[in-house]
Amino acid sequence: MSFEPKIVGFLCNWCSYTGADLAGTSRIQYPPNINIIRVMCSARVEPDFVLRALAGGADGVLICGCHPGDCHYSEGNYKAMRRYPLLKTLLKEYGVDNDRVRLEWVSASEGQRFADIVTDMTERVRALGPLRLKTDLQTDRVER
């Protein structure tokens, strides 16, 4: 069986989750590889959630928030915007390809954009191959 990446998506409630819902109501198709977790704001997404997802077996993580300036909470997305580059640096040190973790802005009317992002990301992660952090963490113990 070919490799089907697992992607965890953290979507802000106001823009991106609504945008993803719009993709649904508009029946815009995208790969089923993403599983969405709703947060109220992209500012709630802790870097630890991303690490946890990767360690738990995800091959990629997508964080979506409102476009800069559009945040329902004024500036929450800027907090996400500030954490993201540092998180990328960290992931690079950990040896996780930067393409596996993405921060994207998706508005409530961008159902198509959301689907495009998911499709694109799924393809990229598929090309990168499985991350296998979960397996590695387990085999580390036995292999020594």
């Binding site: 870097p47 500030r82 540092l86 960290l90």
Partner: peptide
């Protein structure tokens, strides 16, 4: 990761 979150914020 927690420190990252705080610092970047």
């Amino acid at each position: 990761a927690k420190f990252l979150s705080a610092l970047a914020s």
